[in-house]
């Protein structure tokens, strides 16, 4: 399979997958016992408002027409209006998405950097004390639920030591003082934000050290046995440069895993967001479920799934370019 064909096939597969997810969501929300109209009446909407709502969203149309409109709307990134907040879902979710991203992306990246470095050291210094006993706390972290890790962090650093706040992204006073017309990004530049940021960030970094560390350790151990590295050792190459040679090859699996982890972390860290009451999409999702805010649920769920799919897609394409054997094999 040529490279071009490989990219084309993967692109079509990804598009089909996204379509499937959309279809699945469409069906799911029509299987829900009780219609959205019932929900609205329950929430106190007048019959006229319900009729207008049904008309507006074409809820009286046959299913295939609804399905078609639904796909068109989603393709135009127009997921509708939040039933609870009465404003466009996209506007509501955009900021939540940003809050999640600003926490998750640096956190996971820091975890990967730490894990890769530690994994390299452990792989090189096999049978050292670090390698033998250092692995226990790491595996311990790996098998601890993320939300519990976050709670331990809160107990120690917010409760006992009182260094950081227990939850939230910003102190309400600080946000109020800034006034209504401050630009939306202003709060992210304050020290107060940073103060709230440290603990969740660290918890995510520690949680995400586990996978790259284990992968890197195995990878380094496997690489170190290769002939060319033995040769480099014989030529008397300085240790630092030898490690660089080794690292360049050993790191490839990490590069593969990183975007996948990142895509999954967006949804996987819902629980950490809830512990810290971080106003990201995880909290938005739980809130929306409690309020039966279907447009929001639908869109947030689609977003989290899309991140995983797109993450995998990017990996496959980039990997296919780095190592063309992959694209031929599949």
């Amino acid at each position: 399979m040529s490279m071009k064909r490989y990219v084309a096939v993967r692109t079509i597969q990804t598009a089909v997958l996204l379509m499937l997810i959309l279809t699945f969501l469409f069906m799911l929300f029509r299987l829900i016992p009780g219609s959205i109209a019932d929900q609205m009446i329950f929430q106190g909407a007048s019959p006229e408002a319900v009729a207008a709502f049904e008309e507006q969203w074409g809820l009286n149309d046959p299913l295939h027409v609804q399905y078609y409109h639904y796909l068109v709307n989603m393709a135009q990134l127009d997921p509708g209006t939040s039933l609870h907040y009465r404003k466009p879902v996209l506007d509501y979710v955009k900021l939540k998405m940003f809050n999640t991203f600003i926490l998750v992306a640096p956190g996971v990246t820091a975890g990967y950097l730490l894990g890769t470095s530690l994994g390299t050291i452990m792989g090189i210094k096999r049978d050292s004390l670090l390698e033998k006993y250092g692995i226990f706390p790491i595996v311990g972290v790996g098998t601890t639920p993320s939300f519990f890790l976050a709670i331990i962090g809160v107990i120690i650093f917010a409760g006992w030591l009182g260094l950081v706040p227990t939850s939230g992204m910003i102190t309400p006073q600080v946000a109020l003082e800034m006034g209504e017309d401050a630009p939306w990004w202003k709060i992210y530049t304050t020290g107060d934000f940073l103060w709230h940021y440290v603990l969740p960030f660290s918890v995510i970094a520690i949680k995400y050290m586990y996978e790259p560390l284990l992968i890197m350790r195995t990878s380094v151990v496997e690489m170190a046995g290769q002939d060319f590295l033995h040769y480099h050792k014989l030529t008397g190459l300085p240790k630092a440069r030898w490690i660089r040679h080794l690292g360049k090859h050993a790191i490839i699996p990490i590069i593969t895993f990183y975007p996948i982890s990142l895509g999954r972390a967006i949804s996987g860290l819902v629980l950490i967001e809830i512990v810290f009451n971080w106003p990201g999409i995880g909290n938005a999702l739980v809130e929306a479920v409690l309020q039966s805010d279907y447009p929001v649920i639908q869109f947030v769920f689609f977003l989290t799934a899309a991140f995983v799919v797109v993450g995998n897609y990017v990996v496959d394409i980039v990997y296919g370019m780095i190592d063309p054997r992959i694209s031929i094999a599949d």
Binding site: L17, L20, R264, S267, V270, L271, G282, L285
Partner: peptide, 14 residues
């Protein structure tokens, strides 16, 4: 592949 694209915790919450 399709199942892989479903994020577990959000899916279960929904």
């Amino acid at each position: 592949d399709f199942i892989y694209s479903i994020p577990l915790i959000p899916f279960a919450i929904v």
